[in-house]
Design a binder for these strands. Structure first.
Length: 897
DNA sequence: CCCTGGTCCCAACTT
DNA sequence: GGGACCAGGG
């Protein structure tokens, strides 16, 4: 009956070799995840290993969750206990939340508290780290122009990833700059310790240090975990490596899975030696190679292999596939970035139609080197009326309103967190200004108190004018009340008057086991929740959640259900028979939003931006409620918020996905576009000086190409604008293009046939006046131009179809979508004219250049230019007395004059 | 103290 | 395209 029959001989060997160290060199698409999940299932089912003694480490929550689901499918129902499948960072947080205080240095002076982090530590993200460095540099009077906080941070991170402390960095520094950085590193560390905060790198470092220094802790984990699996082993850095060694204990039951050709994180400290020298570390290791690719066609595989073969530092392998031949690798050379994106949108449209006819579920990905490239593709997809999803870029938790609320929660959880405190002390404004803050900062510095304590001291000693004191008091009381609510000791209920509806009345009961971080988080069972889902990314169905069936573990579900009931007032809250419900993070959030008037203030703004921020806040409350339903405490909620990653919100149900090449690792798509194949962009200019870094770019290219199952299309823009307004620059084709064997390539349209000899007169901002276009007087280069503003304006308003037949002369430049369509038609190729949502210009709206308008403040003027589409359009108007003004059509109360 | 608008400078990948 | 910072007026 065995599921082992579904494996090839090598995969089977990888699954069945359970004892001792194993290195699985798994080529792209060779069934790596399948092997890992089957191996776990095999251990449980055939070897009788207790699930909870298996630990699997991945790099993203997404991968962890997926693995968990697949294991569950294989062995589901066999046992309530589950293997622990977690990311490195999440795992480390759990280890630290349990035992970090074992690292405390006992104080030199008796009576003083020991120094070091406590269980209440918070996690600092990129911007928090930046604030710390800025603050330190300001205090030391360092010029942040010469040495930017960014540089300092990246050097600190580098040092940490190579396990150097400030002193070691100082000793090995060869120049003054590095010495300065070492000094700043030291100060940075002090600040974080004072704030009881850890940054991302610290999570790995401190957990490793903890296991190293405390034999008790180490033994606990060695007893607990008998079998260890490491995914993406080629991307592990030094701390991760040491962590692995420590967890492997004496047994060495380590299974590392990786592919040196897919190592793309050396800049994050990933050490390719970890994989290349595995046999040295574990001489008894067994090496298994998985070389059959089940994903791609032969053409794709061959193209990708040819590219990566140009690398020197690799073990080398022979990937093969039974999928002979296949569609050739498409290559499209676009005149510019806009066109590149439109081409992709057009091609995707056709592909989706054909796939639907074949009865397949179409899935396509557009991959790029830098996230900023996504903008053009997004615009193109919208033009074509295509639904797409962007992975990465600006995340939910980076939005200012979300960061504000998270910062409040951090301060409530850990008032020592000065960075978060500074962020919210006057947000929304409550009259605590620069001078007040400076006074408190000085007090803190002089007394050695935290900002929070200094604030209390300033109030007690009346160190400030009455006005400021009152403002400070209101802030202090806000935090104290929130803390009281959380601990269930808050006496009077908050007045519910915010936009979120009534805040749940705080419970008066004492917190207890279910969700209390101090108690629950340190039980061994804490690891059961590892494949977590967060907010919108929650994958289970609503029914599951409602029935409390999702986990299958009856007791927890029952307790949760009771907790829910009690919280909603459906049952008798006085009962002592069950753990009393704890006031949840969501309740605290509601209280905060209510008391600060955050949403109310946004409501009065009455702008679309404000509205979307309100929506985001509601989403955050939802996420907190989901968190509560999972029985999580505040610190667990904050940990998730800190450790959630971009790729985690990749949704495989989405038909079109836009993402960076890095984010695409581990995924597969029938159709893949690899865009921006230009020297300086890919390979990126920052890498081109060092050969090793170019090799990493090449591996990145390999990763991208091997994501494709059926069709791979490479694109490049002949001209590309680097920043919004600058002139476009001519590009040189990426070296990677030349490394693909020519017979494998099919050109999908070239510039030669396009429209020879036109001057570049536009940029694809479709409403740019013709005459002002930058002119590249290189007749050899050809491209289309968007020379006619009138046309583009029409097109923006959805009249594209009307225009389609107007331009027929072949001499005319292919300067708009319609013309391109025609061009393709004349060559027997189809190019669909994009669907543009029809938007009737309402009444006074839709001003065109040349029109006379009236503004309530500036009086009469003449429209000079129009940019953008619909009511979001920006209009530049010339007012006789005020000059040129750029106005958003929707808001400026313009009237026809 | 707070808000606004202008200007400057930046722009790789990510847990 | 946008975030950070600063000057100036309310």
């Amino acid at each position: 009956m065995s599921f082992l029959d579904k494996l090839n001989p090598q995969q089977r060997e990888a699954v069945e070799t359970t004892e001792g160290p194993v290195l699985i060199l798994a080529g792209a698409g060779s069934g790596k995840t399948r092997v890992i999940t089957y191996r776990i299932a095999y251990l449980i089912e055939h070897k009788g290993v207790m699930p909870e003694s298996i630990l699997a480490m991945t790099f993203t929550n997404k991968a962890a969750a997926e693995m968990g689901e697949r294991v569950e499918k294989l062995v589901g129902g066999l046992s309530i206990a589950k293997p622990v499948i977690s990311t490195f960072h999440s795992f480390c947080v759990r280890v630290l939340r349990r035992d970090i205080e074992a690292l405390q240095i006992s104080s030199a002076t008796p009576g003083q508290p020991p120094s070091g982090h406590t269980k209440k530590f918070v996690i600092y993200d990129e911007s928090d780290m930046q604030s710390v460095v800025k603050g330190v540099m300001r205090r030391l009077g360092l010029d942040d122009k010469q040495l930017t906080p960014r540089t300092v941070l990246s050097r600190i991170s580098w040092a940490k990833n190579h396990m150097l402390d400030p002193q070691e960095l100082y000793l090995q520094s060869a120049d003054q700059k590095t010495e300065k950085i070492a000094h700043l590193f030291e100060e940075y560390r002090k600040e974080l310790r004072k704030a009881n905060a850890l940054d991302f790198d610290d999570l790995l470092l401190e957990a490793t240090r903890l296991l190293k220094t405390s034999s008790q802790v180490r033994e606990y984990y060695n007893r607990r975990f008998q079998y260890l699996l490491i995914d993406e082993y080629q991307d592990t850095n030094r701390p991760q490596y040491e962590l692995m060694r420590m967890l492997a204990g004496e047994r060495h039951n380590v299974c590392a899975v990786g592919d040196e050709d897919q190592s793309i994180y050396s800049w994050r400290g990933a050490d390719i030696r970890n994989i290349l020298e595995f046999e040295k570390d574990f001489p008894e290791a067994k090496i298994i190679r998985l070389e059959q690719n089940y994903r791609s066609t032969q053409n794709i595989l061959q193209a990708a292999s040819s590219v990566v073969a140009n690398n020197v530092r690799r073990k080398g392998k022979n990937l093969w596939t039974s999928r002979q031949g296949g569609t050739k690798i498409g290559y499209y050379e676009a005149p510019d970035g806009e066109n590149e994106a439109l081409f992709a949108a057009d091609h995707v449209t056709k592909y989706m139609r054909e796939a639907a006819q074949r009865g397949e579920t179409p899935r396509a990905a557009v991959l790029y080197r830098t996230n900023s490239q996504s903008r053009l593709f997004e615009e193109a997809m919208r033009r074509y009326g295509l639904k797409y999803k962007v992975v990465g870029g600006f995340s939910f938790y980076e939005r200012s309103e979300i960061k504000d609320m998270i910062s409040y929660l951090k301060v409530i959880h850990n008032p020592a967190d000065s960075i978060s405190l500074l962020r919210v002390i006057n947000t929304p404004t409550r009259g605590i200004g620069k001078s007040t803050i400076e006074t408190i900062e000085r007090l803190a510095l002089e007394t050695g108190l935290s900002l929070w304590d200094a604030l209390g001291e300033a109030i007690r000693r009346q160190l400030l004018p009455q006005r400021s004191l009152a403002a400070l008091k209101s802030f202090q009381q806000l935090i104290l009340d929130a803390q009281a609510i959380l601990s269930g000791t808050f006496a009077q209920g908050p007045e519910p008057n915010a936009g979120l509806g009534a805040a749940t009345a705080p419970s008066e009961s004492e917190p207890d086991g279910v969700a209390d971080g101090d108690a629950a988080a340190f039980e061994p069972d804490e690891f059961e929740n590892t494949g977590f889902h967060f907010g919108g990314a929650y994958n289970g169905t609503d029914e599951e959640a409602a029935n409390g069936e999702s986990g299958g573990e009856a007791p927890a579900a029952a307790i949760e259900a009771i907790a829910r009931e009690v919280l909603t007032g459906a049952s008798n809250p006085a009962s002592d028979a069950f753990p009393a419900p704890v006031v949840s993070t969501a309740d605290v959030l509601k209280f905060l939003i209510d008391r600060t008037g955050y949403i109310k203030i946004l409501e009065t703004e009455d702008t679309p931006e404000a509205f979307s921020r309100i929506e985001n806040l509601r989403e955050l409350v939802n996420a907190a409620m989901d968190s509560r339903d999972r029985g999580e405490s505040l610190d667990q909620f904050l940990d998730h918020a800190a450790l959630i990653s971009d790729v985690d919100d990749y949704d495989e149900r989405s038909q079109i996905t836009l993402m960076s090449l890095h984010a695409a690792k581990g995924l597969e798509f029938p159709l893949v576009f690899l865009s921006g194949l230009e020297e300086g962009l890919f390979p990126h200019s920052r890498t081109m000086l060092q050969p090793e870094e170019v090799e990493e770019e090449r591996r990145l290219c390999y990763v991208g190409m091997t994501r494709a199952m059926d069709q791979l299309i490479l694109t490049r823009a002949v001209y590309r604008r680097r920043y919004g307004t600058d002139l476009p620059e001519a590009s040189v084709p990426s070296r990677f293009l030349e490394e693909v064997p020519a017979p494998l390539i099919e050109e999908l349209g070239t510039r030669r046939t396009m429209n020879a000899g036109r001057a570049y007169a536009g940029t694809g901002t479709y409403a740019r006046p013709a005459a002002r276009g930058a002119v590249h007087d290189d007749p050899g280069q050809s491209h289309y131009s968007y020379e006619d503003e009138d046309q583009s304006a029409n097109w923006n308003r959805g009249k594209a179809a009307e225009n389609r037949t107007k331009t027929t002369a072949p001499a005319k430049p292919y300067n708009s979508i319609e013309n391109i369509a025609e061009f393709f038609a004349s060559r027997g190729k189809k190019f669909t004219v994009p669907k543009v949502p029809l938007e009737e210009p309402t009444g006074k709206r839709g001003f065109r250049p040349g029109q006379k308008v009236r503004h309530p403040k500036y009086g009469e003027g003449t429209v000079y230019q129009r940019e953008g589409e619909g009511e979001e359009a920006k209009i530049t108007v010339q007012f006789p007395r005020f000059g040129l003004k750029k106005l958003v059509e929707k808001y400026a109360q313009l009237e026809r004059a």
